[in-house]
Amino acid sequence: MAEITDKIDLGAVGVWRHEKTDPELAVALEGLGYGTLWLGNVTDPELTEVERLLDATERLVLATGIVNIWSNPAEDIVRSYRRIAERHADRFLLGIGAGHREMTQEFVRPYQALNDYLDALDAGGVPVARRALAALGPRVLRLAADRSAAAHPYLVTPEHTRKAREIIGAGTLLAPEQKVVLETDRSRARAKGDGTLALYLGLSNYVANLRRLGFDDTDFADGGSGRLFDALILHGGTAEVAEGLRAHLEAGADHVTLQLLGGTGDDPDPLPGYRALAEELGIAG
């Protein structure tokens, strides 16, 4: 296996995508200065898309956000990791997580299941320095700090980022996800983002985390309150959105990964939005 350097460099800003990503878009994101491309909802234990995108790029880090531990046997993931790391050891971060009780029939004792999975990764030679853990609450954040290189909170605020940094300390990478709508008209922004937000309000782990941040039942009704929408989905022009992304870095994140919902205005193509944000953030190559 190729030599592993101590720390992986995610860059300050990355892109998080649910959708299958064409290699051409990955190359474009690399050229714009984004450090990492996060692939959500990974269902292929062979990790073929990860390898395909790494092969197409030169510097971009690929991270899984996440490999679900219930649907991807550890031995398969170990084998896939070792294959990919032979050529791309310093550009692949294996993010794992327990997913959601409502979507996983096997969801029993998830904390122990995460530990068991990490034990299997240890036994298979997957380095701690190339692992990330999806983490929201204090217990799993501490586990991420103890047994991985990075914590990857999802659907969070800069206040959560600040609290997470206090929990994990200085030695663990903190890489929160942040949803973004490039739309200055608030009603149009909500039209683009409300459906996405409503999906997560039916999942108990996200709701529990939002309660810890001070939200309550009034915020979770009818697809989410205006207060909740404003806290979880950055919206506005590029300057306003860039300021919100920087708020995570100022709160203690090492890296923030943006999930762009829709394109810019009426254009569904995400690339102009990625380009405008890269320029505003000062990362554009």
Rank of each mutant, 00 (worst) to 15 (best):
I96A: 06
I96T: 03
A98I: 04
A98S: 15
A98V: 11
G99L: 12
G99M: 12
H100L: 04
R101Q: 14
R101T: 05
E102M: 07
E102G: 05
E102H: 02
E102K: 07
M103N: 11
M103P: 00
M103Q: 13
Q105D: 14
E106C: 04
E106I: 02
F107G: 01
V108D: 13
R109I: 07
R109W: 02
Y111Q: 13
Y111G: 13
Q112E: 15
L114H: 01
N115D: 08
N115Y: 04
N115W: 05
D116H: 14
D116G: 12
Y117I: 08
L118C: 11
L118N: 08
L118E: 06
D119Y: 01
D119P: 00
A120D: 14
L121I: 02
L121M: 10
D122H: 02
D122E: 12
G124E: 02
G124I: 05
G125T: 04
G125W: 08
G125R: 09
V126Q: 01
P127H: 05
P127R: 10
P127S: 08
V128L: 15
V128W: 07
A129L: 06
A129K: 12
R130P: 15
R130A: 09
R131E: 00
R131F: 01
A132F: 04
L133Y: 02
L133W: 03
L133I: 12
L133M: 07
A134R: 12
A134M: 13
A134L: 14
A134T: 10
A134E: 04
A135N: 05
A135Q: 05
L136Y: 07
L136Q: 04
P138A: 02
P138T: 05
R139M: 09
R139I: 02
V140R: 03
V140E: 04
V140Y: 04
L141M: 08
R142A: 13
R142M: 08
L143S: 00
A144C: 03
A144T: 01
A144W: 03
A144L: 02
A144S: 06
D146T: 03
D146M: 06
A149F: 12
A149R: 12
A149D: 07
A149H: 10
A149W: 09
A150Y: 03
A150E: 01
A151R: 03
A151M: 05
A151V: 05
A151S: 10
H152L: 15
H152G: 00
P153L: 08
Y154C: 07
L155K: 04
L155G: 01
L155F: 12
V156S: 08
V156I: 14
T157S: 13
T157L: 08
T157A: 07
P158S: 11
P158E: 10
E159Q: 12
H160S: 06
T161M: 11
T161S: 14
T161Y: 05
R162A: 15
R162E: 13
R162Q: 10
R162S: 10
R162H: 12
K163E: 13
K163Q: 13
K163L: 13
A164L: 09
E166F: 03
E166L: 09
I167A: 12
I168M: 11
I168E: 08
G169D: 06
G169S: 06
